[in-house]
């Protein structure tokens, strides 16, 4: 697929690849690449890493770049700069990546079968949103062996919002036989800015989806790779991170850290250094989440902290657009359009 947004002429008669043939195509390419053996696909349930590989393979074929997880703590895949920043501004952006997402308050010491301090999202961003994005998504399920004819798949309204980052979008949660497996969003506002063009975000909850595919009750029983269970890898960190977040974290240190991260973020926003500034905003957000889990933020302060994060997110969004413009919107390949957009006022 071309990267230029303006080639993404939204033609409704774009014929989606037929699901069944697609499924075979993906599987065959995986077999050809020696990722799966044919007999595996017929009999065995996909491990988490096979699910990730399948999704990566699928979305890269749709023109998505495969990014890697971003190295700063964050609460959701949306907060990766590969989504938050790149969803803003006129440049096209098609990516897929796995994002470990930390939510300290959701930690349950590894004792709850479905609630985690850290879970994994498989994130897809396509900007501008292609006309057949829903079909592509359904094809990706087919690639995972989920045939839509054999199940009940629904797109149920769920408009997404992250007020602390100035984000809002319109979309659905996708139900597979009654289970929510994906969040599907057309971004409308990011960092307080109306977005144009609009990106479609597809977020698979990997643990949920894998629990369905592998038919297990507890995420800790999921098979990550051959012979290694999710619990073997994550039970200990789940316990420790929960213990830390709820009982052991140094509140004074965290309170001080928040202030210092904030000061640094603001300074780098003023310097026009978008990415260092954004890293510190992410750190503020995670630090706040830790404080919140600890019950260390008084009720009156809570709204104040969220407003501080939101203000920074809004500032950095503006600076990002300005900086991309200074660079000449390099991801826009259509020269005429690029020239036109560069002439426009922000």
């Amino acid at each position: 697929m071309e990267n230029s947004i303006f080639l993404a002429a939204i033609d409704i008669h774009t014929t989606p690849v037929k699901q069944s043939s697609y499924k075979t195509a993906v599987m065959q390419s995986l077999i050809a690449l020696d990722i799966f053996k044919e007999e595996d696909i017929m009999s065995k349930k996909l491990s988490i890493q096979e699910i990730i590989l399948t999704l990566q393979q699928f979305w890269s074929k749709q023109g998505c770049m495969l990014m890697q997880s971003y190295d700063t703590e964050k609460g959701a895949g949306t907060m990766s700069p590969y989504t938050f920043l790149r969803a803003i501004g006129p440049e096209p952006w098609n990516v897929a990546y796995v994002e470990p997402s930390r939510r300290p308050a959701d930690g349950r010491y590894g004792k709850n079968p479905n609630r985690l301090y850290q879970h994994h999202q498989f994130q897809v961003i396509m900007k501008p949103s292609p006309a057949n994005i829903q079909d592509l998504y359904l094809d990706s399920l087919a690639a995972l062996g989920i045939d839509s004819k054999e199940h009940d798949i629904r797109f149920v309204e769920d408009n997404w919002e992250n007020p602390s980052m100035g984000c809002a979008g319109v979309g659905w949660e996708v139900w597979l036989d009654g289970m929510e497996i994906t969040q599907f969003t057309y971004f409308q506002q990011v960092g307080g800015l109306e977005v144009w063009p609009v990106a479609a975000e597809v977020t698979y909850g990997l643990e949920r989806l894998s629990s369905y595919i592998q038919d297990v009750q507890s995420v800790f029983d999921l098979e990550w790779a051959d012979g290694v269970k999710y619990g073997d890898i994550f039970l200990q960190p789940e316990y420790e991170q929960s213990k830390y977040s709820f009982e052991e974290s140094n509140q004074d240190m965290l309170l001080k850290a928040f202030d210092e991260y904030e000061a640094e973020a603001k300074k780098q926003i003023a310097n026009g250094l978008v990415h260092p500034a954004y890293d510190y905003i992410l750190k503020c957000s995670h630090t706040f989440n830790l404080l919140d889990a600890r019950g260390a933020v008084s009720v009156t302060e809570r709204a104040g902290y969220l407003a501080r994060i939101r203000n920074m997110a809004k500032s950095v969004a503006k600076v990002f657009v300005a900086e991309r413009k200074k660079l000449g919107y390099p991801l826009i390949k259509d020269e005429k359009l690029r020239a036109k957009l560069l002439e426009e006022d922000n």
Partner: peptide
């Protein structure tokens, strides 16, 4: 009640 934009449209 809620309106949305998509792709490159206004």
């Amino acid at each position: 009640p809620t309106m949305m934009r998509w792709s490159t449209n206004e």
